[in-house]
Simulated scan of single mutants.
Amino acid sequence: MSQDDISPIAEILLGARDMLPMTLAASTYGIAFGLLATQSGFSLLQILSMSAFVYGGSAQLVALDQLVAGAGVGAAVLAGAALNMRVLLITASMRDAMVGRPWWQVLMGVYLATDASIALMQTGKSRRALSSYWYLFGGGTSLLIAWIFTTSIGGILSKGIPDPTRFGLDFALVAVFVAMLPGLWRGRADILPWIVAGGTVLTFATMFPAQSSWALILGAVLGGVTAGVVRGD
């Protein structure tokens, strides 16, 4: 289907439709995040704000993990921000869709850029289907709405679970993040960055256990730099 023969509204709807499998998958760990965030002392408003303004599942999980582990707010924010630095690299593939767009559309496109939405555009290109700005907008917006909704639902449901450790939910944060890893994998070019990031975290945490929260930040930064060099971004 050529994007010259379709209206922006139709492109938005097609993007939302093609994103549906990832939206359903993200909803499962969105509920888990909301539940664990509430059990960690977050209010429903704080969950909503974090999901809307950070809009980064893996980054939110890492930041929450740091807070639960007793790290300060600054360390948690830095850890999440460092992990989200990969977005600076993946947005390079959005260049064609952004050229000639008004500044506010460019900002919105960058805001909606996630591993899933970029993968959606790349899939569209490989199928010689849509890979336009409005296609990205439709997919990214539908995922954002689902993420905010399900994290809120998780926060509400947690009110009925007074002791999460009794049900093994204290381990759910780790389990959910591990389950997300296959979705973050984009091919063999990720092998070296992952090794650098993982090796850095393990080495730093072993050598400086009292400052282990900073290991995530350093690992994310070095992994991102390595990815940029490997991919030539």
Rank of each mutant, 00 (worst) to 15 (best):
M1D: 08
S2R: 05
S2K: 09
Q3D: 12
D4Y: 05
D5R: 12
D5W: 00
S7K: 14
P8H: 04
P8F: 04
I9F: 13
L13W: 13
L14F: 11
G15E: 05
A16N: 08
A16F: 03
A16H: 05
R17D: 00
D18T: 07
M19A: 11
M19T: 07
P21F: 08
M22Y: 10
M22K: 03
T23K: 12
T23S: 11
L24R: 02
A25V: 13
A26R: 05
S27R: 09
T28Y: 11
I31Q: 00
I31H: 06
F33A: 02
L35Q: 04
L36K: 04
A37I: 06
A37Q: 13
T38F: 12
S40L: 11
S40P: 01
G41Y: 01
G41R: 10
S43G: 15
L44M: 13
L44F: 11
L45M: 13
L45Q: 01
Q46M: 10
Q46T: 12
I47E: 03
I47S: 05
L48W: 13
S51A: 06
S51L: 07
S51M: 08
V54P: 04
G56A: 15
G56V: 11
G57P: 02
S58K: 00
S58A: 14
A59L: 03
Q60R: 07
L61W: 08
V62M: 12
V62A: 14
L64Y: 07
D65S: 15
D65Q: 14
Q66P: 05
Q66R: 14
L67S: 06
V68S: 12
V68Q: 14
A69F: 00
A69L: 03
A69V: 06
G70S: 08
A71I: 01
G72S: 12
G72M: 02
G72E: 03
V73F: 08
A75G: 08
A76L: 07
V77A: 05
A81M: 15
A82R: 07
A82F: 03
L83K: 03
L83W: 01
N84C: 10
N84P: 02
M85D: 04
M85T: 13
R86C: 05
R86P: 14
R86E: 02
V87E: 04
L89A: 08
T91A: 13
A92M: 12
A92T: 14
S93K: 08
S93R: 06
M94N: 09
M94Y: 09
D96V: 02
M98Y: 15
M98P: 04
V99L: 13
G100A: 06
G100N: 08
G100H: 10
W104V: 04
Q105D: 12
Q105E: 14
Q105P: 06
V106R: 15
L107H: 03
M108L: 15
G109D: 07
Y111T: 05
A113K: 10
T114L: 02
T114P: 00
A116L: 04
S117I: 11
I118D: 07
I118G: 10
L120F: 09
M121S: 15
M121L: 15
M121N: 12
Q122I: 15
T123H: 07
R127K: 14
R127I: 01
R127W: 00
R128D: 14
R128M: 10
A129C: 04
L130H: 15
L130K: 14
L130C: 13
L130Q: 15
